[in-house]
Structures are given as C-alpha cells and as structure tokens.
C-alpha cells in the first residue's frame, strides 16, 4: 500500500447509532495513519441476516446497490467496519464478479429503480475489506509498530472474533483459530490472552427475539475470557459489542457470577496506542466502563 490510499467508507446502520464510538475511532485512526476514507454518499442497509429470508435476490441487491455507489464515486475498494455488513457486501461483490447473470440481475433492478439516465450501475469489480484487514494486510503491522507511541503495556487483552469476520472461509484468517487481532494487540504492546471461545458465537442475532439465548452464548464467551485472565475484551463488530457489553449484565445474572469485563473496539485500542486523545475515542459510551482498567495502565 502507498501512502494516500483511498477507500470508500460504508459505516452501516449500527455505526450511526449504537456503535458511534466505533465509527469515530475508525475515522480517527485511519486519518492518523494517512489512509483516506471517502464517505459513500446515500448508502443503504446491507440487509443483515434478514434479506435472504424474504427474497434471495434482495440479499445481493441491497449490498450491491452500495457497491454501485462506490463505482459512481470512482472508487474500487470499500471499507465496512461491521462484520455483518463486511460479509454481506463482500459476498455480493464476489457473486457479481463471478456470475454475469447475477450482474445483469443487479443492473436491471438498479436501472428500473431510478429515472432513465440517472440509474446506478455496477460494471466494475469492487473489493470489500474490513478495517482490521486493511491494517493487517494493506497498511502492515511493521509500519503500524513504528507509529505506536503509547504502548498498552500491562493490559491483558482477549481478542474476540465472533463469526462473520472469519466465516464463511475467506483468505484473511483461520475460521477456527483466528490470530489477526491477537497479532495486532501484540504490536500495540498489549498482552495477548488466548482462550477457547474466541471464535464462538455471541448469539447477537437473537438479541431481541430470544434474549436468553444471547445472554447464555455471550456469558460463555465472557466467562472463557475472564478465566483466561483477561482485563478487557476487544472486538471488531457492533453486533458482538451489543451482546458482550450491553447484555453483559443479563449474562452475569444467568451465569451467576460477576464478569465486569470492559469491551472495546480494536480501533479504540489502536487509537490509544497511537497517542490519540482518549476523549475522542468514545470510552464513556460503553455500558461496562473501561476507565478503571485503562487508568491502571496509565491512560
């Protein structure tokens, strides 16, 4: 990657509501590192896990509309920080790139959705990346190490990968024992905590309809991290964050034990290590306060 790389930025719905601290910290870290994010104008929902239940074409169309927006802005790479959006956009991009019939289905729908001459079209191949992989694969950990001015010495960090960051199988990391976020934490000076549940599901998808299921799966993940000696958990998905942070009190009641594990987005940790102002990284927005743990290691 060269300095001045440009990516279209697709925040997704969560990053404008529950996960604004993720949005702010991604933008702050990328700006500090000289990676340009261009806001995708007029982006729409990716369909989450619900679109294909209603109409299999919608599961391609909804994300593909956003890829067409990137094309309209002259960009061929999209960064999507929500693991669910990342997976949906990336999957749609691959389907369109690999199947002419899918591409014409998408373009027919886009052509019919706006007045003639103004319709979006997806004629190029747009690659979709998660910001974690932009840092790991495109920016590179060696370069990132040189930028670390405030190492996270003394902070025991359990990386939580969840599901859609690594599954279905892609080129970036192991689906069973992923290591990318751990390598990042090590470069930031944090102590890597390995634990059995790091790639198991938090149940975030059921958080409203079957909240007890979410509390149980989340409890299993948090207890596993706690037992391995973690001070905090870090992750890369707003759905997982809602489960591990907001549902932590439900999980504590269900598991019958106090957990008190702050849950931070990986970009918040990167921001700290880069010396960005902690006040700009949104640490007061979490339901489980990280302030005590951060103060203990000098932040």
């Amino acid at each position: 990657m060269t300095v001045g790389s440009r990516y279209a930025y697709y925040p997704g719905c969560s990053l404008l509501s529950g996960a604004r601290e993720y949005d702010h910290s991604v933008r702050a870290v990328f700006a500090h590192l000289g990676i340009e994010l261009v806001d995708l104008e007029d982006w729409s929902c990716c369909g989450a896990v619900h679109a294909d239940v209603h109409n299999p074409d919608a599961a391609v169309l909804l994300p593909a509309r956003n890829l067409a927006l990137a094309e309209a802005q002259g960009l061929d790479r999209v960064v999507a920080p929500c693991s669910g959006c990342y997976r949906n956009l990336r999957r749609a991009g691959k389907k369109v790139a690999g199947d002419k019939q899918v591409r014409s289905m998408v373009n027919d729908h886009l052509a019919g959705a706006r007045a003639e001459g103004h319709a979006l079209q997806l004629t190029t191949d747009v690659e979709v990346l998660h910001p974690l992989y932009v840092l790991l694969e495109e920016f590179g950990l060696d370069r990132l190490a040189q930028e670390v001015s405030h190492p996270l010495y003394g902070l025991r960090v359990a990386s939580y990968y969840g599901c859609m960051l690594t599954r279905p199988k892609d080129v970036f990391d192991s689906t069973e024992r992923p290591v990318g976020m751990d390598e990042l934490v090590a470069v930031l000076g944090g102590e890597v905590v390995d634990y059995p549940m790091k790639a198991k599901c938090c149940g975030g998808a059921m958080a409203i309809s079957h909240a007890d299921v979410t509390a149980r799966l989340t409890g299993n993940v948090l207890v596993s991290a706690r037992d391995a000696g973690a001070d905090i958990v870090t992750l890369a998905c707003p759905m997982c964050h809602t489960a591990l942070d907001a549902y932590q009190s439900k999980a504590e009641r269900l598991m019958g034990q106090a957990l008190d594990l702050p849950v931070l987005y990986f970009t918040q940790l990167v921001g700290l290590a880069l010396g960005l102002d902690p006040a700009s990284l949104g640490f007061s927005r979490h339901l489980v306060s990280p302030h005590e743990q951060l103060a203990r290691v000098g932040f």
């Binding site: 719905c13 007029d42 909804l62 019919g112």
Partner: peptide, 17 residues
C-alpha cells in the same frame, strides 16, 4: 431516522415481497 435520499428506490428493488 437516517434515511436514504429516495427510500422508494429500495422498495422499488422489490427487497420486500
């Protein structure tokens, strides 16, 4: 709510049956 400029465009894509 955050809205796209033309929500009918999403509806017109027959996303929901």
């Amino acid at each position: 709510p955050e809205r796209v400029s033309e929500p009918r465009e999403i509806a017109a894509m027959e996303v929901v049956d």
